[in-house]
Structure formats: C-alpha cells, structure tokens
Nucleic acid binder design. Structure first.
Length: 876
RNA sequence: GCGGACGUGGCGAAAUUGGUAGACGCAAGAGACUUAAAAUCUCUCGGCCUUCGGCUGUACGGGUUCGACCCCCGUCGUCCGCACCA
C-alpha cells in the first residue's frame, strides 16, 4: 500500500512511447465523426522552445485532448515557420548554412515539444522551407498571377543601405534598420504585390461574422483596413498658373460638407503637380526634397512641424469659379493615401487650422454646434471637428452636417468639368497592397523569369519547384542569389533566349498564410486537396499571441479568399475561433547600475525570505541582488526559465499544469518557482491519493449507489465534472484547475478511508467512480499522470482514447440548499431548506428563524423578496 | 490625440452576469507526526472593534435598486493598439 513518489522521468517517456506506438494521435481524414481542427500558431525554429511556446501548446493540447474525449475527430498538427532572416544572420555570424542551422533547430525543438507529451499528429509535420512545401507555394503564386491577384509595380520601399535589402515596415524601428541600425532610405524599386485591396470591403464586412474572435483583434483589423466614406473632387486650375499647363487637380475628402470653409489646397511632395511646380523653381524643389527625406521615422513624424510652400498655382472653387485658392506643397500630405491632395478647411480640422494660422490663410467657420449662435460663433486656436449645423455656406446654411454632405455630393456629381462630373462619392481604404518581394536568400523563390524580349514570364508549372541553390556564400552583404554564378541564368520558357530568374524571394508571412490548409493534406501534389481542405477548414480553434493580430491574421484571411478564387478551397474565413493567449513573465534580477548593470538568470539565484522580505541571492557567492520588475521572458534580461530544465526537474505535467493555473489564459502568467512547486505538489498528491487506494479500488465490482454515506463523494465528482466541462468549453483553464483542486480537497478523505480499509463496497464504488472522473478531468492537462493513474486502477485502454464521462444531473443539484437571509440588504441569517420549497414555505421558515426574529425586534416586514434558490431579503 | 481593455486581500485570482465578495492556488503563521529534517496532515489568514457578536470593505465621488465588484453619471490611475489617413 505504501506508494512511491510519482516519478515523471520514468512515466512520461513511457506513455509518450505508448501513444506513439499506437498512433493514438494520427488523424484519419476519412473518419466519419464530426471534425474539430485545433491549431496553435506554428513556431519559428529559433533554436530552443521557450515558456511562451509551452503555454501556447499546453492550451491547444487541452482543447485537442478534451475534444477528442468528447467524440470529435480531432486534427492537431504541428510544423515550422522556417524561412526568415535569423537563419541568414546566423549564416553570416557563425558561418553555418541557413539550411543546416534551421533543420538543426527544428530537430532540437521537435524533441523538446515531444517531451511535453503533446497530442500532435506528427505524421503531417512539415517546415515551410521544405521543397515540398514551397513548391506548392510557388504553384499558388502562379495561380494568383493568372487570376490577377499578383502584380508587379514600382514603389517606394524601405532600403537598408548596410544590409542591402528591403525591409518590411515593421522591421524599421525609429527610422533605422532593426539589425544593422543604419538609417533607412526610401528607394523606388520594382516589387511584387498581392492584391489584398481587392478584398478590402469583404475583409472588413466579414469581421462581423467572426464572433469567436477577441473584440480587440477585430477592432485592430478594422482600424488597419481603415474604411472612410468621402468624395473625390476635381478642382480646375486657373489658367496660366501651372508651369506645364496642367488643368486640374483631384482631392479626396471625407468632409465635402465643409467645402465653403476651404481656404487652400495641399498636395504631397511627390504629387505630379508638385513635380511640375518644382521643375525650374529651386526653392520649391528644395522644399519638396526636404519633405521626401523626412518621413520614415515615427519619432520624426510626431515632432515634425507642419510645413508648406506656396506653389503659385491657383485653383477655382468648384462651387464658385470666381473664388481662387492657393495650392501648397505640404509635408503632412501622403501621396499614397487618397489622391495625394487635400483641400484644407481650417475651421473644421486642427491640422488645417494650425497650417492656416502659420501661413495666414482665412479661417471661415462653416459648422457650429446645434444650439450655437452664428453671430458669436468663432474659431480660436481650436478647430470645431464635430457634427453640427452649417453656417457661412450659402445654399447649405441651416443643414445638418450629414445633409450638407449629401447636398454637395449631389451637386458635384451632376455638375460637369470638361465632360466628367466634378465630384464623385468615393470609399477609401487605408489598407495597401501587400509587397512581398524580399532581397533575401532564405525564402521561397518567386517563380518568374525576366526575358529581354518577352518581359516577365511565369515559370511553367511543370518546371516547378524553383529550388533554392545550396551553394551560396554569405561573405558579402546582399542577396547571395544575385551573385550566384549559374542559378539565375536560365532560358526563357517562351522564346528560349537567355533570360534571368527573379532573385527576390517571398516575404515569410506568405509561408504562414496557408500552412493551416496544407496540414489537411500535406502529401498532395497540388497545394491542397480542395475537398479535404473544405472538410477540415475553418480551423475551429486557433491559439496564438496577440502580436499577430494584424499581419498574419489579416494575410491569412486574404489568402483564404485568394485560394478560393483559384479553386484551392471554398471558404472565406480560415479561423472560426481565435484565442490570443497572454505571455509568460518573470521577475528580473540584476546587480550594478546604469550601463554597468548586469542581469542574472533565475537559475543562478536563490530567494531567501527574511522577516517577510524577499531577497535574491547569487548562488555562487551569496551576494545580494536587486529584484526588478516582472517582465516578458527575454534573453536580454536573462529572466528566462528553460522548459527543458523544468521538465527534467518536475516533469512535463507539472509544467503544463502550472502554465494553465492561476492566471486567466488571455492574461500574462507570472512564472515563479513557488508556483511550480505548488503544481508539482498537486501532481504528487493526485498520485498518492489514487495509488494508495488503488489496490482496494481495483477489487470494486459494483456501481456507485449514489446514496447514503457515499453520496457526497459522488456529488463532488459530478459537480466537478460539470464545472470543468463548462470551463474547458470556454477555455477557462484557470477555473478548471480551481474546480479540480476543490474536488480533490473534497475526495481526499474518502480516498484515505478506502486506502485504510474503512470503506464498504458501496462506498468504495463511489470512490472508484470519483477516481475515474478525476483522472479524466486532469487528463487534458496532465496526460501522463492520468495514464499512470488509469493503469494503477487496472483500467483497460488508454485515457487518451477514453470518452468524456457524462455527469448525472441528479447529483449536481442539491435537494437542500442554504439561502442567505438579508434584512434591508444586510445578511443576518442563513436558512437551510428544500430546494423546491415554494415561496410561502420559504417566507414562513425565514420568519421563524431566531436570528431573524431577534433582528426584526418586533417590527413588521414591509416586504419580503424571495429570489428562488438564491436569496431572501426582508425589507422593514 | 483616437480606439480598446482594465482597477477586488501580502500576491495570482474567483463571484452562476443584479443575489452570501474573496472560491482555488501562492506566500505567511500556529499545531500534529518525527530523534531530526524533508514529505504529509490539521487549523488560522481583507481591515477595525467591546470577537460564539458587530462595524466596515471590490480605485475615488455620486446615482438607480429590496439588493451593486456587476447597471448609469463623473473623477483618478494602469496597460495595450493605432496615429500626419484628409
């Protein structure tokens, strides 16, 4: 009967082997049961698994194991987001080939993940840098190209002059390259773009259908897509004022209602009209150049003064040809939003007002608050930006903002300039097309060929894959594909003449935009098997970090639509349920100050508690260290805990259980040694309770009677079952943990009774059932422990393949309940009464209570409120 | 500036969405077992007071309600996202 301590180092590899040998988690696409696809964002193979991964994959694994137990055919795959710059950086720094570096990391991390006991279908594993994967990505690219979903255009890009590559916007930090630290330049380059803007409206509208997504992510995407309703308005240029004789300029506005408040036009420095004005005017040219140079850095934008320069060009007001307005080049007007030109209404826009004050332009109030007085309404240093009533606006006077918008839209769309309407309603989006060209080696080659005669020619599908060459050098900066002696030289597929391969590769976000579809049939020759993909998709539960709220999650939504148009699948939204989990954070420890500060890893310290004061002490010397703030685990602060160390010391179950405990899953969880030990105590306690009683429980033959002495045991088990089930359904892992603790506290005594031989058959039967329920409840979180306990009870089969139990409704409802009794809203007594007692019976019983009589002191209640099965409140 | 989330013991948090505030865990304290330690078990644990009872308490100030952590108005604070978007 004496039990040994539970030893995860022995049990965990053993059960992992059993699961593996029985292919327990290999998913059959033809299984007739209802499908459930659970997916965690696949990792970048950076080198080692960190605690953030552990939390992410532990959550996904709970869902997968729980849904499997509930009878679903679960798909739970894993792969590697394996292309990207870190591999090339490693190549440059450590003289290791990106491919070797990547696959070595994958091997290490795969082993780490396997040691966690995740219920993954490893047979579907792939890395995005596998030729088999990027081959199909090239296939998709060609299909997109054919459908007009990919195009090539010249555009401004962030150019890192040290690394000699284009950087994505998110790789530019404060105007500098994130790796080189060099000031980023703007360059005009010809790049490949995905036409995500084709779907702007649909991507926006469909957000409303994603009711299992966090509100926060939907709002972020909505803002990113940035829809605005307005008008384009064409302004006629006064004769002779434009140097090269341009006739008109088109502006975009969301406030056509304020047209009579216009006092100037402002255009971007890159606007064709600006170039026209700059030609032959050195002052304007110098100013335009200054505008172009500024710009990239966020800090610069924040502090940049609003500046402009009069071009000398004059335009005629669309509703009064006699009214001429100046055209300025302004540093705050963006060429790539709207039309690159605006009209300024200083009274209705703070930025326009600042500009007008600076250049002494008229400020005419055109909108005032609904109850304002037109005679006294003035604009000082603050623009009036809200809706209201029109003033000083001729035929619009007295209208609401909204009515004035419509009136102007109506007037301008019927009024002709030349033979075109002068204005048109126009919806504008902030969303830009997705530039995917990267001057990098370690990415998916863009499968096109440049021919002097034929132009850009797609690589024929029969010639795919365009493989990355292995024999490349990283001794010089820039793209090794460019300087490869042979790779880029190829015959034109159309005319056969000498031609050149595209040497740009695809942004790694392309790789992660469709991997979830590939998992459904990774063995296919085509990118997907549409039937299979349509069966499995959408992903029922997707879990990952909030940092991908926009990029990855938006790109994937676009890809799903594009793959639909090219026949690779037939749905719009790839992720039905999305959950964004919080980070794993840890205290920081350091010594020294300022630049001399040195961070110390948690593994090298010990926490002493003296007089209630926590002190961090360096293990090697006993030196006292400074305990700093709690922050995201990071290499730079050294506040990392290696999952390998934790698994070696406590086992995977403890680590899994801990990251699911305490904090709600969408919030950060604080890693602490004490907390881990608490989880480990729980693992040991469950094992002790079950193993000590196991011998007796194995002999139980009867079913639980659900009455008498054993009733509370059955009730505790079934109540926990009901509660945990609800918590798992809602991904409330921390609450599930608490309910399981509650149950264990409730049944610990009865388990002990059985172990001590103080239990009859009926009682033991109830305990046995409780033990089985407990095992099944913990199984999604601590699967190895569950198997070990299951086997100890002598049960057949694996917990991993066992069905979720069904709770007995009669056991989760108490026949007697305790009602709090309030007098004037303050609790004065408790009443124990039958659950189904009617209102009168409750009232009488309440009034009969001594405590109530004493508190009433002879007063007659005015009112007695009885909330059935909740509370009683006596009002006097 | 705009948008979003949030504020509950020493700490992480719960509260069936208007019905006993603090479940559960961590930390702390006391005790049992032990030659001793570890492990384990039992008890205490928001604050205050006259302690088998009472008062008070969910950032702060009001309000609605028989009843408010929850709803409404206002104030303060924290975190996150976006930000020259015309």
């Amino acid at each position: 009967m004496a039990s040994e301590r539970y030893n995860p180092r022995d049990t965990e590899p053993r059960w992992q082997k059993t699961w593996n040998e029985n292919s327990v988690f290999v998913t059959d696409n033809n299984d007739p049961r209802e499908k459930y696809y659970v997916l965690e964002m696949f990792p970048y193979p950076s080198g080692r698994v960190h605690m953030g991964h552990v939390r992410n994959y532990a959550m996904g694994d709970v869902v997968a194991r729980y849904k499997r137990a509930r009878g679903y055919n679960v798909l739970h795959p894993m792969g590697w987001d394996a292309f990207g710059m870190p591999a090339e950086n490693a190549a440059m720094q450590n003289k290791v080939h990106p491919k070797d570096w990547t696959y070595q990391n994958i091997a290490t991390m795969r082993n780490q993940l396997k040691s966690m006991g995740l219920s993954l279908d490893w047979s579907r594993e792939f890395a995005t840098c596998d030729v088999e994967y990027y081959h199909r990505q090239q296939h998709l690219f060609l299909d997109f190209l054919e459908k007009g979903l990919v195009y090539r255009k010249q555009s401004k890009v962030n150019w890192d002059p040290v690394d000699n590559t284009v950087l994505a916007n998110e790789q530019v930090i404060d105007g500098r390259g994130w790796r080189s630290g060099a000031l980023v330049e703007q360059r005009e380059l010809t790049q490949w773009f995905f036409k995500i803007t084709d779907f702007s409206q649909d991507l926006l509208d469909a957000l409303d259908t994603l009711d299992q997504w966090p509100e926060k992510v939907r709002v972020m995407q909505k803002n990113w897509i940035g829809r605005s309703e307005g008008m384009t308005i064409r302004w006629e240029i006064a004769e002779g004022t434009a140097p090269a004789g341009s006739h008109e300029v088109t502006v975009y506005t969301t406030r056509p209602d304020t047209l009579f408040g216009a006092s100037f036009l402002a255009i971007a420095a890159d606007h064709p009209l600006a170039r026209e004005a700059a030609a032959g005017n050195p002052d304007i040219e110098a100013f335009a150049e200054e505008c172009r140079r500024a710009g990239t850095s966020v800090a610069a934008l924040e502090t940049a003064e609003k500046k402009g320069m009069d071009t000398g060009i004059r335009v005629k007001h669309p509703l009064d040809p006699a009214w001429e307005l100046p055209v300025y080049i302004a540093n705050f007007v963006l060429m790539d939003y709207g039309t690159g030109a605006i009209f300024g209404c200083p009274a209705g826009d703070q930025r326009d007002l600042d500009f007008a004050r600076k250049y002494d332009l008229p400020v005419t109030p055109v909108v005032m608050p609904k109850d304002g007085d037109p005679a006294s309404f003035k604009i000082g240093n603050e623009a009036y930006v809200d809706d209201g009533v029109m003033i000083n606006s001729r035929f619009l006077d007295g209208m609401t903002t909204e009515a004035a918008f419509d009136a102007v839209a109506e007037r301008l769309s019927t009024q002709l300039l030349g033979n075109q309407p002068q204005g048109e309603r126009k919806v504008n989006f902030r969303l830009r097309d997705w530039g995917i060209s990267r001057q990098r080696y370690w990415g998916c080659p863009i499968p096109v060929i440049h021919c002097d005669d034929c132009g850009v020619v797609a690589v024929p599908k029969k010639d795919l894959p365009v493989k990355l060459p292995d024999d490349v050098t990283f001794d010089k900066p820039g793209n090794p594909l460019d300087r490869h002696p042979t790779w880029r030289h190829v015959a034109c597929p159309q005319c056969g003449k000498d031609a050149r391969r595209e040497t740009d590769t695809m942004d790694t976000f392309v790789d992660s935009s469709w991997y979830f579809a590939r998992f459904t049939a990774p063995w296919e020759n085509e990118p997907t098997s549409p039937e299979v993909a349509n069966h499995w998709l959408p992903v029922d539960q997707y879990i990952g970090g909030i940092e991908h709220a926009i990029l990855h999650l938006l790109y994937s939504r676009f890809f799903t639509r594009a793959m639909r148009e090219t026949g690779h699948l037939d749905l719009k939204e790839p992720f039905k349920g999305l959950f964004t989990q919080g980070m794993v954070v840890h205290e920081t420890y350091s010594r020294g100050e300022g630049t001399a500060r040195e961070w110390i890893a948690p593994a090298d310290i010990r926490i002493d508690e003296i007089d209630g004061q926590r002190r961090a002490v360096l293990l090697s010397t006993g030196e006292e260290l400074k305990i700093g703030s709690i922050e995201k685990m990071s290499k730079s602060k050294k506040n990392v805990v290696d999952p390998d160390d934790i698994i070696a010391a406590y086992g995977a179950d403890t680590a899994r259980f801990f990251v699911l405990s305490d904090s709600p899953p969408d919030r950060d969880v604080i890693w602490s040694e004490a907390g881990v030990e608490g989880s480990h105590r729980f693992v040991q306690r469950v094992w002790r309770l079950i193993s000590e009683a196991a011998e007796k429980l194995r002999k139980v033959k009867s079913k639980p009677a659900k009455e008498g002495e054993a009733l509370p045991v059955s009730q505790a088990a079934h109540k926990a079952l009901q509660a945990v089930q609800g918590d798992f359904d809602k991904l409330n892992f921390n609450k599930a943990v608490a309910r399981i603790y509650e149950m264990v506290n409730a049944v610990a005594g009865p388990f002990g009774n059985v172990a001590a031989g103080k239990a009859d058959e009926a009682y033991a039967a109830a305990v046995r059932e409780a033990a089985e329920i407990l095992i099944l409840l913990i199984a999604p979180m601590t699967p190895h422990l569950a198997e070990e306990c299951w086997a100890a009870l002598g049960n057949e089969g694996l917990v991993a393949q066992a069905s979720w139990p069904v709770f007995d409704a009669a056991l989760v409802i108490d026949s007697e309940i305790v009602l709090p009794v309030q007098i004037n809203g303050k609790k004065r007594a408790e009443l124990t009464i039958a659950r189904d007692a009617d209102q009168n019976a409750v009232q009488q019983a309440v009034l009969a209570l001594d405590a109530v009589q004493a508190a009433l002191a002879g007063q007659t209640p005015k009112k007695i409120i009885v909330v059935p099965q909740r509370i009683v409140n006596i009002v006097v």
